[in-house]
Nucleic acid binder design. Structure first.
Lengths: 221, 221, 221, 221
DNA sequence: CATGAATGAGGTTTCATTCAT
DNA sequence: TATGAATGAAACCTCATTCAT
């Protein structure tokens, strides 16, 4: 089971990544949110290497000092932004998975692909900017934790498929999830002919269904 | 040899990306290669943000001044290293594709997956380091060009499949290629259970075959 | 009570050194003292360079704003703390001197050394921390004033020595006082073998008596 | 010569205090020396808290970058400057002590006091500036090492005194050394009447001789 | 009055790049 | 041609101080 090799991630209350102060007043919350948006904008326009704390503060409309009151350093800031994004993604996936329990496998795949592509394209720019950042940040733990959440949700759902059962469910889960990532990212990065964008959803469904069909067997009463 | 990473320079509208000089003596060739290796090592141990020209020069065993005689700036250096890597990848793919012409589709997939995974895992570290760098460098043009080369080779090969024919060949090509990337990268980044590494090749074959089977029709004599 | 660190304010040409307000309620007096203690603690644990007004406020248990209501700036705060310390020292010395009037010289020296070492070792940490701070603060005026007070007290006492009289009393006074400082500070700073700590008082007495014996003559009736 | 301020580096387990590069060319040596002088000047005019690396570089006539090529950070720079000063002091003391072996005790004291006061007043400003800095730097180890060197030299000399012998030589040594420091520092800091400056040497001799006379016995043939 | 979020000048340090030797 | 010391713009981050609530 997958939770085995990730089982200690949640023990990592990596204090060094903790934001400095948790704002409780409405204004502060707004500020922090504005900082998040500003960070994403700068990330997009200048790239990770070109992102400076001064710029983020400027675009947020606050002073550097204020920025540093909420995030003890640049690293933590980026980490927090990435975390918010991944969190939303994972929540979206968990939601569809929960709602698709007990349905036929093909339906499950359709729902999941739909949710996945939606989530990605809803905030294309955000995603694009962050995937670049994620690599340089040592955010592998965070990314790992998130994909585990998604795999677990997927796993739990597929185990309830009305019509099919799997030999190696975790393996299938892993493949489906990561197979969706490749084409989606390629499309977002602009690495393919534009007419593909429209076709993406359908092709992803075909891709996943084709695979799952081969690694599962009909469920007998 | 320098022509390796020079081979596509003519595509570059931006002359500033061209290395400053083309050394011809055997000793210099060695030096340039040493610079590449050093760059990769530093990239791996310190990340893109932590890579400094001084460090690269040091590890190469030359002075910064000398480094700057071969590469007018850091950007060009990284670009060149990335280009060499991508070129090797593309060449490997082109080779298998050429050799698999006219074979049955399933065989083609097996060969291509084999070559792809081999190429990736042969230089895992190199690949890992460079994919991170690629995002920050404005290397999308370069990356795009390379994947196009690969798609073309794939396309040309699949068109000759002995047993099947495709409705939308470019689309299928795009999907197959990018579908392979997702799981492979996930495994390399450590984002999956270790036992998956061994299973990767087989699963990729299943994934691609499952998909292609659904988007192609039997070829009638 | 505030008059403690206020007692010499009138000497200050520089009005900007005056604390902003003189709190009269019992609660406020407590606060000011707490501020002093907090300052000393921070000074000890972080050094002068590491002392921040926010930290002092925090350790005092008030907000920075409140701190600034009592001390218009950092400099004044430190000045006040130093002043309190020096004042206590001077008062201790003045007390022994007053009590030793008219005694034989050797007795005087014994008493003074005793008081001096007591005062220093009673608040070792405080003294240590403040001597460091004193140098950076332009507190030379304050320090000068205090040592003058002590010299005067000493002078007045020695003039009444039952058995001896001096050629140059101010000079002798200066030497005695500063001679005690050297070894004492050296011991406190840990710059000598530990067994010396115990011997300090005796050695200081010997040192001063030896000196005074040579610069004084027997008093004839 | 550079080996001067490098001579005790080997005692330092703390590698972090090591200068970054040991200049070998004449120009670099000059640069480093200029940096030392500049540091002292800035220390004097602005105090330790007011000393900035930018200022030091400016006054040295080099860029900040150059400064940081020789000293990895501010702390190391200050440490180096202090070390050079203390080293000169210790060497001066060691020299007189060596030359005074086997002389009568009173002569020894005269020589040592002379050398001590000379060394201090030769570079009054330097000394003044550094004593302030020494406290904030965690240079107690360095200071301790230096005074031990001086105590040892003094000890070795006094053991050969032609006319007197001591019960507890280390204790006497410690007292003599630290007793000289008090009045000297007081005079330098301006904490005494100006006419004392001239009298200092004589008074120090009296002070030390008076003390040593009491803690030693005549040496019998 | 107390609070503590906001400010922003300014300090430390890095590193791509140049150029005298 | 190779070297590596020098440069200095620019990044990160701190902290004394203010002021709206």
């Amino acid at each position: 089971m997958l939770h085995v090799w990730h089982s200690h991630m949640n023990h990592l209350a990596d204090r060094s990544m903790a934001p400095r102060k948790t704002p409780r007043q409405a204004r502060s919350v707004l500020t922090v949110d504005a900082v998040f948006e500003a960070t994403l904008q700068v990330l997009l326009s200048h790239g990770l290497a070109g992102l400076t704390t001064t710029q983020v503060a400027e675009r947020t409309g606050v002073s550097v000092g204020t920025l540093y009151q909420y995030f003890p350093n640049k690293q933590v800031l980026l980490h927090a932004v990435l975390e918010r994004h991944l969190n939303r993604l994972a929540q979206a996936m968990e939601a569809v998975c929960r709602q698709s329990h007990r349905q036929p496998l093909d339906r499950m795949v359709e729902n999941v692909v739909q949710a996945f592509v939606d989530a990605k394209t809803a905030r294309v720019e955000e995603a694009r900017a962050l995937y670049r950042a994620a690599a340089e940040l040592d955010a592998s733990a965070l990314v790992g934790r998130t994909s585990e959440r998604m795999r677990e949700a997927l796993c739990a759902m597929m185990a309830t498929a009305a019509d099919r059962c799997f030999e190696d469910l975790p393996l299938a889960t892993f493949m489906v999830l990561s197979a969706m990532v490749g084409p989606t990212r390629a499309v977002l990065e602009g690495g393919g002919p534009p007419e593909i964008v429209a076709a993406l959803r359908g092709e992803l469904v075909t891709l996943c269904q084709g695979y799952l069909d081969r690694v599962s067997a009909a469920r007998t009463a």
